[in-house]
Simulated assay, not measured.
Amino acid sequence: MSLLRITEIFYSLQGESNTVGLPTVFIRLTGCPLRCVYCDTAYAFTGGKKIEIDAIIAEVDQYGARYITVTGGEPLAQPGCLDLMRKLLDKGYVVSLETSGALDVSEVDPRAIKVMDFKTPSSGELSKNRYQNIKHLDAKDQVKFVIGNDGDYEWSKSILTEYDLPNLCEILFSPVMGQQNPTELAEKILKDRLPVRFQIQLHKILWDDAQGK
């Protein structure tokens, strides 16, 4: 029997990525090897409940949604995450994986949409970025940079250029809420004519809530 430790399963609007605003079922796996200073889901580091994969999918089915997001924590920290995504994809769901970019994504089902969050300097986890993952990205995937200050912005721009990311997949720039002024970030993107998607976490605007409930 294949078990995953789950913090929560909930139905809400997608608050980030290029499917923002779409009704989505979120499966939040427990555990993460990173400790980003701006993390808004530290409650998922520990605890959770072990649930069999088929039972997880049965709960997801009840919502009647098309879009599924597998998130954490860091979902790839649990090897069974790969099997969960494969089974969801086999059922016809559109599945996105929110991952830190610190763990190997080479075994992720190619049908899944990878939303990979490269850690900026202010996260405190810059050294954890696994740049080898870039070769496993394609046009349907997304790379996210969470911007906390000018240093993060300049570093992110340099990574865009070094790895030619805009010609590989979609790029997301997101401000750290309460730290990086979103208007200032938007104006920088326009001034520098960056080929990126600016995003604000919709769920925090609608519900002032990190989880998107």
Rank of each mutant, 00 (worst) to 15 (best):
I147H: 06
N129K: 00
P23D: 08
S158I: 03
V60W: 08
L126C: 06
Y153V: 09
K135R: 15
G80H: 09
F173L: 01
D164R: 13
G64T: 12
A42G: 04
C39K: 08
M1N: 13
I57M: 07
E184P: 00
L82R: 13
Y67E: 13
T183W: 12
F173G: 00
L103R: 13
A210T: 09
I113S: 04
R28Y: 05
K87W: 02
L137E: 00
K119W: 01
D104L: 09
T183P: 01
Y93L: 11
K128W: 00
V94W: 07
E8H: 07
S174N: 12
S174F: 04
L84F: 09
H203T: 12
D61S: 14
L3D: 07
Y43W: 09
S96L: 15
K188I: 04
G124F: 01
W155R: 04
L84N: 11
V115N: 05
D192I: 11
I134N: 00
G151I: 07
Y67S: 11
T24N: 07
S12F: 06
C32R: 02
V176Q: 02
A102Q: 01
V143S: 02
I27M: 04
C169G: 06
D117W: 01
K119Y: 00
K87I: 07
D141V: 13
G151W: 01
D104R: 11
I53L: 12
D164F: 01
K119A: 00
E125C: 00
F26V: 12
T69N: 13
E59R: 15
S106M: 05
L137Q: 05
A42M: 05
I113V: 15
S2T: 13
A58S: 14
L97G: 06
I134Q: 03
A55R: 14
E8V: 06
G148P: 12
F198L: 15
W207N: 09
I56F: 03
Y11W: 11
T30I: 00
N133H: 03
Y38N: 06
G101W: 01
I147G: 05
T24K: 06
H136Q: 03
G212M: 08
G178N: 14
I171H: 08
A44D: 01
L165K: 11
S17V: 07
Y11M: 04
V115Y: 02
I205C: 02
L84H: 11
L172F: 03
V70H: 07
Q62P: 00
F26C: 10
G48M: 13
E170Y: 05
D209N: 15
L29A: 08
L89Q: 06
Y38R: 06
V37C: 02
K144Y: 01
I53V: 14
E154T: 13
Q14P: 06
L4G: 10
L172Q: 10
M1G: 05
E184M: 11
E52M: 10
E98S: 12
A58K: 14
L89A: 09
I51S: 09
C36I: 02
Q180P: 00
G31H: 02
K213R: 13
K91Q: 15
V37R: 08
E107K: 15
F198S: 02
S156T: 01
M116E: 08
E125S: 01
T7S: 14
N167Q: 12
N133K: 01
L194F: 07
Q62D: 04
S127V: 00
E170R: 09
K157C: 15
D117C: 00
